[in-house]
């Protein structure tokens, strides 16, 4: 099935995720000091930006995989499987970005939600990639679906730089970037900065593990389809009075996609 090396890397990523997230939580909840203005609320800063970063990262991977599929020289259905795997993980992280932001916003701003540019474009990001995933469920053969969703994935990605720059381009309630701001001068220091950095690293590990796990599922699903189709063809051949030419037209409607050679 999956290679030994793949398994080993995935396991390592899993262990690294568990350990580093534990460290982030301990530092974030107990070791770091409260903030002068925000008090305890500052603790949410160790999870919210890292989770948002992973969403960007995931959609970036989806885009690269999409380009690699669209480019004829590198075209391979595996890129399509990687793209969808990363997009799904990205949607989870975008959802968590919206939830943690809202939980922070209520006590800090006074509102759960407001229609400023950062929040609106982030919600749009979430919906765009939900659309990407929905589009994939529209029946099509695997090549057609791969092309279609690669294009959709690339269009959706346009929103990522807009989300990031929204706090610069428009007036927002949301604060500007703490680390990656236009002047590139971090506005957080000491153990608070260290914890934020560990947060970024730990959720990136979580992403790597999830991506590998999700990709393996996509791969297994493909194999199941292959086995099914093989079996179907065999059975059809054995049935008296059914020509093999009919196989394609009468194939199981659920599996309308031909697992093309990967």
């Amino acid at each position: 099935m999956e290679s030994k090396r793949y398994k080993r890397v995935r396991r390592a990523a899993g262990i690294a995720s568990l350990l580093s997230v534990a460290v982030t939580v301990i530092l974030g909840l107990w070791v770091t000091p409260p903030d002068v203005v925000q008090g305890q609320l500052v603790r949410l800063i160790y999870v919210h930006p890292p989770v948002a970063w992973v969403a960007y990262l995931a959609y970036g991977v989806t885009s690269i995989a999409s380009i690699l599929y669209l480019w004829k020289r590198t075209r391979n259905l595996r890129w399509d499987l990687l793209a969808v795997s990363s997009a799904e993980v990205g949607v989870i992280f975008t959802g968590l970005t919206l939830i943690t932001g809202s939980i922070w916003g209520r006590p800090a701003w006074g509102v759960w939600w407001t229609w400023d540019a950062r929040l609106t474009t982030t919600a749009l990001l979430f919906v765009l990639y939900l659309g990407y995933l929905a589009l994939r469920r529209v029946p099509a053969d695997s090549h057609q679906r791969a092309v279609r969703s690669a294009i959709a994935g690339l269009i959706a990605f346009i929103d990522v730089p807009i989300v990031h720059q929204s706090v610069v381009w428009w007036r927002t309630l949301h604060q500007g970037a703490t680390v990656l701001n236009p002047s590139l001068s971090p506005k957080i220091h000491g153990e608070m900065a260290t914890t934020l950095l560990i947060g970024f690293i730990s959720f990136t590990f979580v992403y790597i593990w999830m991506l590998m796990q999700r990709y393996q599922i996509a791969d297994l699903e493909q194999r199941v389809l292959d086995v099914e189709l093989e079996q179907l063809i065999k059975e059809r051949r054995n049935e008296p009075g059914v020509g093999s030419s009919q196989i394609e037209s009468t194939e199981d409607v659920d599996n309308a996609d031909q697992p093309s050679k990967v």
């Binding site: 997230v21 939580v25 603790r43 949410l44 999870v47 919210h48 993980v89 939830i99 922070w104």
Partner: peptide
Amino acid sequence: MNGYVEAGYLAVLGGLGGY
């Protein structure tokens, strides 16, 4: 702490754990 902080961490850990 103040309820919100706990809720935020729980949401993240619960969401990622569940997935």
